[in-house]
Amino acid sequence: MISSIGLFAAVGIFSLALSAIGGATAQGRTASAAFDAVARQPEAAGNVQSALILSLAFIESLTLFVFAMIFILAGRVTG
């Protein structure tokens, strides 16, 4: 018999892992595209760098939204 907390923990970890995979893939593609751009146009390195950091943060935040949602719902489940 699986408790509701156990089920929640399993689903939570799984969805967090899933979003981490997605985020990591997207960040990898972003970084690779940025490095390609810098290799082609080294003089634009500054602009590419700031755009890269912004993009990585946006992607990163999706994974962290999932993390935060798990915590919010954890309060509901355990409380």
């Binding site: 943060a57 990163e60 935040s61 962290l64 939204f65 993390f67 935060a68 915590f71």
Partner: peptide, 13 residues
């Protein structure tokens, strides 16, 4: 919402 959640979630995580 997203601005605050991004910062908080990063630091909290």
């Amino acid at each position: 919402f997203s601005l605050s959640l991004r910062l908080f979630a990063n630091i909290f995580a």
